[in-house]
Simulated scan of single mutants.
Amino acid sequence: MGHLNADFGGARMTGYGVGPVLEEFTGVSRIAVLRGGGLGDLMYAIPAVTALKAAYPTSTVTLLGTPIHAELLAQVESPVDETAILPFAEGVRPGAVDEENLDRFIAGMRARDFDLAVQLHGGGRYSNPFLLRLGARHTVGAGTPDAARLERTVPYAYYQHEPLRALEVAGYAGAPPVDLEARLRPRPEFERQLAVSLAGDTRTVVVIHPGATDPRRRWPAERFAAVARRAADDGFRVLVVGDQSERELAETVVELAVGPVPAGAGAARGSDSADHAAPQVASLAGKLSLGELAGLLAGCSVVVANDSGPRHLAQALGTPTVGIFWAGNAINAAPLGRSMHRIHLGWATHCPECGIDITQVGWTAPRCRHDVSTVEAVAADAVYEDVLQLTAMTPRPRGR
């Protein structure tokens, strides 16, 4: 079989899911799943983990992930049994590689005697050799033509919906789909905390996340502010979220929406009674744990965001979203349905600074050095119209 074709590893096909579903492996009780990256990357992997747990119900799944994965999974209900934080390793977790630490991690994982190791981290140039070092009895994953072969290898092409790619890999491990997209739930304590903080506040809550890891995926702050202003004028409570690095951006959105914010003003949380003076638009950026963020996202009425981790998390928690995507990223990461999730697309195909074709992405082409937004052309009016439609369909001012 040619190297561009699927490699079944001699296995028998038993059915179809996203792609072929191959026969299950026998005697599987310990599964390792490799997926680094941020929150969005974790959401891409969750449906495959759910499928693996269903196919191997007596097994435990160890996610080889990142610190943000471990933090979130400790504060939500998910199909992952435990998280092992990856060491810095080229192409797997960016950072200064400490070979001794890397070797210790590999030795520790080998001692687990994994029965099955599943690679959900890209095209395999670096992640497949990393996975093979774990010494698992069986290995499954995606691979580009130049990647090391696993026991069963799914052909990797950059433009494929990431959760469905992961489900196709799971199918090669004998696990048909259960969910097509991630499904999570915040722990009850965070839902209760949200209920307390919003007690007596009858306003519909709209959450905005204006950040994104890649600057090219960011809708301009003034467009988010325009949406926030219109929502506030219509009586909604608008909360802008983000991590510590996004505090300034979130505060900019608030200021553009309502004017300068007095020192000490903001959205209180965890109070014993309703804060009736809570501002219509306020920033919580840098103030929430991931569990608190999950509680807020699960309990609000709609989330407006770029193609970012919090938007993917909101979707996994069952909350309607309005997402702003570059068209290429929408192929890989946009929600599948439109009843609860709306998308607005930036159709840029070339960098306005240097003219390079930005559709040639992934491992085959280098990224140009410019950070010009690919979604700037998306109109605020169109985004806000979807906010109105979704809040009319699913009014949930105080959670579910």
Rank of each mutant, 00 (worst) to 15 (best):
H3W: 15
N5V: 15
N5L: 15
A6D: 07
A11L: 11
Y16I: 15
G17A: 14
E23T: 03
E24M: 10
T26K: 15
G27S: 13
G37K: 03
G38Q: 09
Y44L: 10
A45V: 07
P47R: 09
A51D: 07
P57N: 03
T60W: 05
G65L: 02
G65E: 03
P67T: 08
A70E: 01
E71Y: 04
L72P: 02
A74V: 05
E77I: 15
P79N: 11
T83D: 05
P87T: 04
E90S: 12
G91T: 09
V92Q: 09
V92T: 05
G95H: 11
G95P: 05
A96W: 12
A96K: 12
F105T: 01
I106L: 10
G108C: 12
R110A: 14
R110P: 07
A111D: 15
R112W: 06
R112M: 12
D115P: 13
A117Y: 05
A117S: 08
V118Q: 10
L120F: 09
H121G: 05
G123K: 05
Y126W: 15
S127Q: 13
P129Y: 15
L132P: 00
A136T: 02
R137W: 07
H138P: 11
V140T: 12
P145R: 14
D146F: 13
D146T: 13
A147Q: 05
E151M: 13
T153H: 04
V154N: 00
Y159S: 11
Q160Y: 12
P163A: 02
L164A: 05
A166E: 01
A166I: 08
G171W: 04
Y172M: 15
A173F: 03
D179G: 03
A182C: 07
E189C: 11
E189P: 02
E191K: 04
R192T: 14
A195P: 03
V205R: 07
P210F: 08
T213P: 05
D214T: 10
D214N: 12
R217F: 08
R217H: 10
R217V: 10
R218F: 07
W219V: 06
A228G: 04
R230N: 06
R230Y: 07
R230I: 05
D234G: 12
G235I: 05
F236N: 03
V241W: 01
V241N: 01
E246G: 01
R247T: 08
A265M: 11
A265C: 09
G270K: 04
S273W: 08
S273K: 02
A278K: 00
Q280K: 04
V281F: 06
A282K: 01
L284Q: 04
A285Q: 02
G291I: 14
G291F: 06
G295M: 08
L296Q: 02
A305G: 07
N306V: 08
D307N: 04
P310Y: 06
L313T: 09
A314T: 11
Q315R: 13
Q315N: 13
G318M: 10
P320T: 15
T321C: 08
W326Q: 07
A327Q: 12
A330W: 00
N332W: 03
P335G: 14
A348K: 09
P352C: 03
G355S: 04
G355K: 11
I358G: 00
G362A: 02
A365I: 05
P366T: 00
C368T: 02
D386M: 06
D386Q: 08
T391D: 02
T394A: 15
R396K: 15
R396W: 13
P397K: 14
R400W: 11
